[in-house]
Simulated scan of single mutants.
Amino acid sequence: MIANRKDDHVRFATEQQRQLGGHHQFDEVSFVHHALAGLDRSEVSLTTRFGGLEWPVPLCINAMTGGSVKTGLINRDLAIAARETGVPIATGSMSAYFADESVAHTFSVMRRENPTGFIMANVNATASVEKARRAVDLLQADALQIHLNVIQETVMPEGDRSFASWGPRIEKIVAGVDVPVIVKEVGFGLSRETLSTLRDLGVRVADVAGSGGTNFARIENDRRDRADYSFLNGWGQSTPACLLDAQGVDIPVLASGGIRHPLDVVRGLALGASAAGVSGLFLKTVLDGGVPALVALISRWLDQLAALMTALGARTPADLARCDVLVHGELRAFCADRGIETSRLATRSRSYGTTHETIGGIR
């Protein structure tokens, strides 16, 4: 049954990707254009450092799948693409492996195909410390993701209905594994309050994983005989809303959920993320065109990321958080309601003086 569910998730997620389009709250974030702020391309580095980790690029293939023959082949192809481009990669939830060890190869194929890459294992918040260690060991993982999916579980016919233990379990896992723990949502966002709680639990990094990409409320509704929970399809906060809400919370954050192109990655980094994760679009690309198509797409994105950083005067991904940005529309209204000051973002480059290098041609 778990294998069937994993295959259903891939099918419905791919269908959603083909239907996505139109406005996204990332479009409500724009850069103030400073025409003389640019650098030489040779000065720009894509290396990003956060939470004691170092990635060669501020982009990863985020958690997707595993647990069936079909999804094992997908994980193989994703791992090859990660190996060829140098991007970190995460498995999907390893719950299927805990239920049936015969599907272990559908996850471990990632390490076999990507022996020196940065790989993240993925478990849910109900996992024991022993299961978390098994997941890390199977993949020789460099980090462990714990996903939070209360809304997905609520809509899922066979889903969990007991959530009170999740925080204490996360705290035990953080203390009980030998790799950094990254806690992520699955598409409904992490609020400022949740981020503060995760920080206090000892979590090293949080992936806000907001709405705007794959919608697991819709996916689980599609798996039902009747769409009893369709009213939850719009639940949650967008990724840019979560990033703005995270301002001032002392925990590094990653941006995933609705990333459509390199400009969205740069917008996410400018709003405080240390890196961005992509799932649905990369899944669609590898299913439609195979490994060569995904390698070409990721390579193009990395080149375009460097080009955008060069134009914006950002030597490193972290420097993008010094660039002036404007917040518009519903996203600005969200910030007003949450007490988030946005006007300072439009002039923050002035605060860095000479450390921001060139603004308007003046050093």
Rank of each mutant, 00 (worst) to 15 (best):
R134W: 02
A127M: 08
K172D: 14
K131D: 15
V129M: 10
I170N: 03
Q140F: 02
E130W: 03
D160E: 14
T154L: 11
A135C: 03
V129L: 10
Q152N: 08
S165K: 12
V123E: 00
N149K: 01
S128K: 10
I146F: 00
K131Y: 13
L139E: 13
L148W: 05
A127V: 07
Q145A: 11
D160S: 08
V155F: 03
G167T: 00
L144D: 12
P168G: 08
A143V: 04
R134Y: 00
A143C: 14
A143P: 08
N149F: 00
N124C: 08
K131L: 08
N124Q: 11
L139K: 08
E130Q: 13
H147D: 13
G159V: 03
A125C: 13
S128W: 12
K184A: 03
A141M: 15
L138N: 03
E153N: 13
S162D: 14
A132L: 09
V150F: 05
E153A: 12
P180S: 06
R161N: 06
K172Q: 15
K131Q: 15
E153R: 13
V179C: 07
N149T: 01
I170G: 02
R133L: 12
A175Y: 01
A141V: 15
D142H: 13
E158G: 10
G167C: 00
E130Y: 05
R133C: 13
A141R: 11
A132T: 09
L139D: 11
D142E: 15
L148T: 06
A175N: 09
L144Q: 14
V181G: 01
K172C: 03
P157G: 10
T126K: 04
R161P: 02
T154Q: 04
M156S: 10
L138K: 04
Q140K: 14
H147A: 13
G176C: 07
N124Y: 06
I182M: 11
V155S: 03
L138G: 03
Q152P: 02
R161W: 09
L139Q: 13
R169Y: 02
S165R: 12
E130H: 11
